[in-house]
Design a protein around this nucleic acid. Sequence first.
DNA 1: ATCCCGGTCA
DNA 2: TGACCGGGAT
Length: 335
Amino acid sequence: MAPKLLVWYDRHARVLPWRILPGGGTPDPYRIWLSEVMLQQTTVAAVKDYFLRFTALWPTVQDLAAAEDAHVMAEWAGLGYYARARNLLACARQVAHAGGFPEDRGGLRALPGIGPYTSAAIAAIAYDQPETVVDGNVERVVSRLFAVETPLPAAKPELTALAETLTPHIRPGDFAQAMMDLGATICTPRSPACGICPLLDDCDARAAGIAADLPRKAPKAAKPDRTGIAWVARHGDSLVLEERPAKGLLGGTLAFPSSGWDGCDLPPPGDADWTEIGHVRHVFTHFNLSLQVLIGDMPNSPERGHLVLLHDIDRNALPGLMRKVWDMARANMAA
DNA sequence: ATCCCGGTCA
DNA sequence: TGACCGGGAT
């Protein structure tokens, strides 16, 4: 099974900015780590430009370790799951101080932002160790190969154990990447291309005609609707922005001052005659948010946040939700 | 406009 | 177990 998949990988491996093609040389652990952290919960297409930009700005882990927190947060803006950016920096500094990355899964696992998946991926891909890498792609491929009917997430241990039986002692890194490429390009969630799958003859789900129905999933909980207010506070030719608390939702990102959307109620950044200019909607993992956007001229200095010249506001340094608020405010001010 | 997809941490 | 986002498919 593994040899068959490796033959397929040698012909069909995706060309990716962080990937060394089969026989192409030795991977740089820094680049593998950076790409794997960016790829957590995030698609390859979304990651590519961020990866190129990060590696251009910070070519080594020492460079990244020396970067300013705010600079890294600004470069990460738009990628989502901002705890990853904070952990990235903490990890870079720990690794730079230690003089390099640990080369075993256990050592990697102890670093900030590196869990079961990422530790196995770095050990296998960067150090070619026979670790079994299990991400969402692999769970799907394995559930089909063995026709596992147990719903996720309960099936996770079973799928991991089955995946371990597949991992070869030769080229485990290429095998791990091959499994993920297969899941991303052929063994896809909705309409798997079984006709061109190199593992067609090994697949129990295909034989049973249920490949597209696996993996089964437990029903998802409904997400609540929440509301809040965002204030676009003008003071001269500046607006008020603030850095959100380091932990929690959108932690450490740049934002327009807002009321709490999760219970606590925060005040506006100052006194003004507020005018509603609309609502922005945003979907988080666990709730839907509708934010009322208020704009106003504040005669006094802000009581929260800090003033940023309109000219200096960088849309790209804001997370997605705040880009929506900024776009709405800019359209309103232009009118 | 919805639904679906995906790792780590406390 | 629940808290954490944004992009792509339908």
